[in-house]
Structures are given as C-alpha cells and as structure tokens.
Design a protein around this nucleic acid. Structure first.
Lengths: 338, 338
DNA sequence: ACCAGTCATGTGCACGGTCACATCGCGTTC
DNA sequence: GAACGCGATGTGACCGTGCACATGACTGGT
C-alpha cells in the first residue's frame, strides 16, 4: 500500500543525502572528497544529513568509476611462522592507517600454477600494489616473468634492487658467525634453511664468507626445512661424529631442535656445544639455555614495505636503506671446551 | 590520427568481448555466470575471445550491481601468535577455495572505539560475513551491542551459542589437570591467561572443576599475559615458596618461561616440578624437556568457521559440533618427588 | 494449423559514485 | 562599465556488470 516507500530498506546513496540536504548529488560528492570550494555552511549541512542517515559511501561504485581500488595485495608463503605473520600484521595496520585495504593470499605451493592462481585472485580485486612475502627463488622468478602491470615490493629477498626490501641477512649471518669465531670456535657447522629460500641462501652466504675471511674451513651446510623437528634430527646425526664445537642455525626453531638433540645425548649447551640462531622469536629468550640469536625487526619491515609501495604509487620515490639486524648474545654460546 | 583506436589501453569489458564475438553483452554475461541456456558453440566462441583478450570481469561493477561482495571479514587480535595465525591462514584458504575474498583487520586495542573503527573499515568493504578472532570478553560484548546486520562467527569463544565455534577448552584443561593428578600430584598451580580472555577463563574453569572433582585444594590461579616472559617471572616468584609439585600453564609459551625459571633455580623438570601446557605449538615437542600439552587444531577451526559462515549465508544451517582437543604426553610431566 | 512452452539471444536500464562541463553571482581590472 | 576570473553549485554522461523483459525460432500437443 505504501507505494512511495522504499520497500527493502536500501542503503542510503549520495542522492538520498542530496535530496534531504537540498543540494545536488555532486555537492555531496564534493563534501565526501573534501573539495575546497564549498561553503562551510553547506558542507556542515550535508555532513549532518550523512550522519543522520548513517550514510556510508559505496566502495564498489567508487572503485568502478575511478578504477582505483585502494587495495594492496599480499602474497605469502608459510605465514603461520612468527616472522612473516608479524610482517603481515604490520602491513595491514600500516595500510589501513593510509586508508588502504589489504588482501592476503596464502600460497599452498610455490609452483607457477599456484602463483598464477593466487595472483589472479588478487588481480580480480584490482589491487594497486603487491607485497610478496614468499622468499623463494622460484617465486621471484615466476613474478619476474609475469611482467606485472602492478607495482610490487618483495620482502626478504635480500637483493638490492629497487623494489626489494629486506633485513640484511648476510650481515646478520656474519655477526653470528663472527661471534662464534671470536669465542674461539674453529669447527662450526651451519644448519641452513631450504636451498631455494633466498634468505636461507643469504644466511649461508654470510656464514661462508665470514668463515673464509677468518681462514677457517667451512664444511658443507646442512640443508634443513626451518622446523624444530629437522633441527632435532640433524642434531642426532651430527652428534654421532661430533666434529664441531659450535652450530650456527639459520633460524631459532632449528636451533631449538638441535639443542634438544644435544641434551638428549647427555651433553650440555653451551659447555659442550655452542649454538646461535636467527630471528629472535619471542620464545628464544626462554629456551634453555636462552638462545644467542640475530634479531630482525619484522614489523618494521612490513611498515616499510607499505611506505615503499605507497610512495611508489604516488611517484614519490625515495630509496630505502636496508634494515640492519642485531646480534643478541645470550647463554647458548660460550668458548669451546678444550 | 587513429581516431577509432582506444587511446589509453583500457581493460577489455564485457562489451568488447561481445562485439568481437559477435554477440550481445548479455550473452557474454551469461557465459560468465554459466547460465544453462546457451548453445555450447556460442559459449565456446565467447570463451575464446575472452581468453584472447585476457578478459577479467570487473569485480567492482559486479559488486555494485549485485550488492554481493563475496568478501568475508576477519577481526583479529594478537594474531602474530601461532594459534590465531594458523586459523587465519586456514580461513583465507578455505574462503578462497569457495571464491570468497578475505579482509583481515588486526585490532591494536580492544576498546569499543578501535573495534568500531575496524568494523567500519570492513563494512566499507561490504563484507558479507565476519569471523571474529579476538577472544576477549569486552570484544564480544561490543559486538553483541552493535547489533550487526552481517552474520558473524566468533572463534575461541567457548560458548555454545549458535554462531560460536571453538575447541572445547574446558575439556582440554581438565585433560591436562587430570593427567597431573593421576600422576600423583596434589599441589598444582595454574598459570592462567589474561582474565578477560574467554579461552583463559575456560581453561581456568576446567582446571578448577577438575581439581574440585578430585577433592583437591586449588590455589588462586596466577593471571598472566600468555608470554614466555611472564611465565619466567611467575616461575621465579613461585619457586621462592615452592608449595607445589606441578604447574598447568594456560599456554605453551608461559610453560616455556616457567621451565626456564625452574632450571635457573637449579631444579629439574620433571624431577622436581611437572609442567603441562596448552596449544601444542610446533616447538613444544622440542622444549627441554619436551612439553606435555593439549593440542588444538587451529587450521580446522578456521576451516569450520568459513563453512559455518558460508553455510549460514546460504541459509543452509547445520549445527557444528565442538572440536575436542587431545592431550599429548611428553617428558615434562612425571610423578611428584616424595 | 494453432497456440503454448521452452530455448537462445538481444535491449535498455539500474547500481552509486565521479568527471567534464555549464551556470550564475560577484568582485576586480583597465 | 564591459570583460574577466573565480567561487559555489548544478546537469548529464559514464564506469562495467546483471536483471527484467522482449524477441524470435523451434517443438510438441491437440
């Protein structure tokens, strides 16, 4: 019966606001985008109506006409770990503070097909920029080949290229290695990450460089998978020969597993074996013994990625310096037994 | 000069495809939404043109006209931790598999204003559903008061209401407590999580219930903040009196810190003190000693949340059963010293 | 042979914003 | 005092898609 009444209460549009405020829809649009030439009085009136109606601009309509989505995409891999999770969290917060939305895709695998699919998903969203947090060689290669029309920043990729941002892994690894050498260790093994991870490669490189600079023989690194499980099994293996006095592990989890193996063998850390890790996860300070490790600032990395991306988006390009990691010395390292 | 040429290469639209394929835009639309009545031949032709043009449907336009965003929002708090991070990851993957997008907002604080702001951000995106992963009493209260028009599922909220999904925390806590009691412990302290966290409350409740069922005196739980740091400091405090033989910690991190304190006091786990945790983070198996803990399946929780939400969205409601946690017995628990 | 029903396809409009351009009043310049 | 610039506002088209409805061809029952 009430024919002139809007049947299903539709969300108020810019025109509804305009009608009630007694202005044109364009004036409302101007208020929304705070255009300079609007009388304060008019602006206030429109604003009041918007508040009364609890008006919310329709993003889809806006995106449609401006073709700007104000969304950035994040491509992540194995992001349940502390490091990437912290970075992603920081990315979201930083982006939101700038009025951007974040859409994350978690890769299940790193083959080109999975990547293509993930990317398609993000492109459907018309993302304006991409942060890639899947630091594997093949992932980067795939992205390079894709010739994206969207600007992107890669994290943890250890390169020095323009669109890459990372903590200086090589320096971090050298810091840890140097620390062990300075303590008097001569036989140090490196528990590396998976071969195809860029960070793993960089840390390994740092380790090997430092060793050779100090004229120490470096045995072939053991290639692991980042997990505590692997560290444990590697430890059991290595302890059968025991031709080392110190271990530099490419992350804290593997270090933890290694310590487990050492203890299980009836040996002590750091009395019999010194161990240094990488990342400084919040738990590392409470390992037994507390772990000497290399700290990197994951949230800061995320924030910078957003700054770089948004800076780039607005053609306001400034070079970013690499983040420098810190060595945190705790109880897991000591001079070797003699 | 080339006047009929599209100047700035605009992305191809449904009409471009239509023109080239020699059909109407509506037919293309039908192909897109695979409408039943289309000749296979026509469909194939259109599809080919779409491929040639690398046509991608414009989501904004689609959202605008259908007012369905196919996006679900996630509200998270302290999501860098293993548990929530794993759930969120699983949510994203499950949602993507269903063609949905996920937009996560990470709360910086849990006051109503922060929540309102976060929610506004998500509503701007026209989310069709919400998963709330911020298991604090005040957060839920705020959401209840908000009277959302969007369906939402709360995770980790331990209630039995219709839109709540969680691992049965009370049962988990009782399992761990019972295990300690069965080993012969009589004086057990509970290291609880922050009072306003629903999970913390539930675990505490489970602990107290089990203790009283077995006619054992329960001392007031120590209210912590989930961190290993707190566990460590609590341990140092408690060990000065040492009126207990076992500890049930509300999460693995605090358990780790506690072990640290025990060791630092020159005591042994489990010889002098038994310790059980909660969550079974991947590192727990390699603590020293490996931690007895309660495992919960975070990814499964995330997947179910999506299923529940999408099921609800399509009015295809089926009740979900609570997830049951498992007790994983490792080396950190043993009979008490006598 | 006629009408109804279905299939395959086309036509025009609506969704809710923004953009380009038009309009109008008013102060300023020569 | 006519031309001009500029501030404040309005008008209509357009972004890319889906929906309601229309159309025409063909099928089948009577």
């Amino acid at each position: 019966m009430a024919e002139d009444d809007t049947r299903v209460t539709r969300a108020p549009s810019i025109r509804d606001v305009a009608r009630i405020a007694g202005v044109s829809h364009q004036t409302v649009s101007r208020v929304l985008n705070n255009h300079p030439s609007i009388r304060v009085e008019t602006k206030a009136r429109v604003q009041r109506v918007m508040d009364d109606l609890q008006y919310r601009p329709n993003r889809a309509a806006r995106v449609l006409v401006t073709s700007r989505s104000r969304t950035i995409g994040v491509v992540a891999y194995q992001a349940a770990h502390y490091g990437p999770a912290s970075s992603i969290l920081a990315i979201e917060q930083a982006a939101r503070a700038e009025g951007y939305f974040v859409n994350t895709v978690n890769l299940e695998a790193t083959d080109p097909e999975s990547i293509g699919q993930a990317l398609g998903h993000l492109l459907d969203q018309a993302v304006e920029g991409l942060v890639i947090l899947a630091p594997q060689v093949r992932v980067f290669e795939t992205f390079d080949e894709l010739n994206l029309s969207v600007p992107f920043v890669t994290l943890q990729s250890a390169g020095a290229s323009r669109n890459t941002l990372s903590v200086d892994q090589v320096t971090g690894a050298r810091l840890a290695t140097r620390h062990l050498i300075d303590l008097g260790h001569r036989h140090i093994h490196h528990l590396a990450g998976p071969q195809d991870w860029i960070e793993a490669e960089a840390r390994m490189h740092g380790f090997l460089t430092e060793m050779s600079d100090r004229d120490l023989p470096a045995t072939a690194p053991i290639l692991g998978d980042w997990s505590a499980d692997f560290g444990y099994h590697a430890g059991r293996e290595l302890l059968r020969v025991r031709d080392f006095t110190a271990i530099f592990s490419a992350n804290d989890q593997m270090a933890l597993g290694f310590i487990h193996a050492v203890r299980e063998a009836g040996l002590d850390v750091p009395r019999d074996v010194s161990i240094a890790g990488f990342d400084d996860i919040p738990e590392a300070a409470h390992f037994w013994p507390p772990l000497t490790t290399v700290r990197q600032d994951f949230p800061e990395l995320g924030r910078r990625a957003v700054a770089l991306l948004l800076g780039r988006l607005s053609d306001d390009d400034r070079p970013e310096v690499g983040l420098v990691p810190d060595l945190v010395v705790r109880g897991s390292t000591a001079p070797p037994p003699f």
